[in-house]
Amino acid sequence: MGETISDRQVVAVLRPFVRACGPMLDALRESDPFGLQARAAEDLAEVESGLKAKLIHGVTSVKVPGTAAWARMTGYDRSSWWMNRVGRFTALLTSIPGLGGALADRLPVQDALGAASQGLLLCAIAGEYGVTDVGTRVRLIAWVLFERAIDPDLAAGKHAEHDEAAEADEAAKLTEELRESEKKHGKATVKAAGRTLWRLGRGLLGITGELEKRPRGNLFHRALGMLPVVGAAGDYLGERSGLRVVWKRAHGWLTEHAPPATAPR
């Protein structure tokens, strides 16, 4: 039996993780990453009616971050979008180790990637509830994934051992792939996002014992995941099932802790 992991150890790992999740998620949420609004505004200035205007309206009605349709969605619906649309992508990445069947399942890779995916999405939906500070997001992840009630001051880094500079440096290392992609391509590519997820997962290995507690699939999903090749399908279904539990727990926790003016109804 391994040593007990303290709340302070959990916080030390989660704070740089949360800080690393911020840049990628905030760029998607607060900017116009697909350029849809900007192009629509330019084209609508040229035409007042007709087929072209209808087509542009159709484009801007697509519900993705940065569009007018996204701005009109409720916070609850935007949070559901993160869990369902983006969750499919992260669940797929997490299930790749399942190609190795039982061997992969005996390694911490699956849990590390799965916890990173779930933590990333928790940070995303926290923003839709108006929760932007690192400490509260740390408490959210710890409670939803590990069923830990972390002291608010500890989660906020208000203790003698907290090293702000080291934490910022660790967060920067976790997002190195994203920065390089933005410099080279002007945006974060899917490849860079995938590699960053792997980095985020590795960053959680310091609390491997806790990662096993995260929500995941049932016995059927786990049994299927033990088989070579088809294990990836079992792991994918298990991750999707786990995300539904994560979303339910997160909604309850955030409804109680989010700022009243921004909590989704």
Rank of each mutant, 00 (worst) to 15 (best):
A172I: 06
E177K: 13
L107W: 04
E182N: 11
G238C: 04
V62E: 15
G217M: 01
G66H: 09
K248V: 06
T255W: 06
G98T: 03
A188Y: 03
A27L: 13
L55A: 12
S117I: 05
G58T: 13
E182A: 15
S6Y: 00
A41T: 09
E210F: 00
L120I: 07
R199A: 14
L51N: 08
T189S: 08
V13Q: 13
L121Y: 03
R85M: 11
G35K: 05
R148Y: 04
D169V: 15
E46S: 05
W82V: 09
F220P: 00
E48M: 14
G194K: 08
D77C: 09
V246S: 04
A156T: 05
R214C: 03
T262Q: 13
T94P: 02
P33I: 09
R216G: 02
V62P: 03
R15Y: 04
R240I: 07
V190R: 08
L99E: 07
E167Y: 01
Q110E: 02
L120W: 02
I207C: 07
A102Q: 14
K183H: 04
L14I: 07
D153P: 01
I5R: 08
D105K: 13
V230E: 07
D77V: 12
T4W: 04
R29G: 08
E128R: 05
K63C: 15
L55C: 11
H221A: 10
L14Y: 00
L55F: 11
E167N: 11
G225H: 04
A104W: 06
K191F: 12
P215Y: 02
D111I: 00
A155N: 03
K187N: 01
A126G: 06
E256C: 06
L51K: 13
L197K: 00
G252T: 14
G203E: 02
E164C: 00
A168K: 11
D26L: 10
D111N: 09
A166N: 06
G130H: 05
K187Q: 12
V138C: 12
N218V: 01
G101S: 06
G50W: 04
S61P: 01
R15G: 08
S79N: 06
V138W: 02
H57M: 15
R106L: 11
T255R: 12
R78M: 14
W82I: 11
L140G: 07
A53G: 10
L51H: 15
I56D: 03
G135I: 07
L99G: 14
K54I: 11
H257T: 10
F146I: 13
G98D: 03
F220T: 14
Q118E: 11
R179F: 02
H162W: 15
R8M: 14
R137S: 05
S6E: 13
A233G: 09
D169P: 00
R199W: 06
I96A: 14
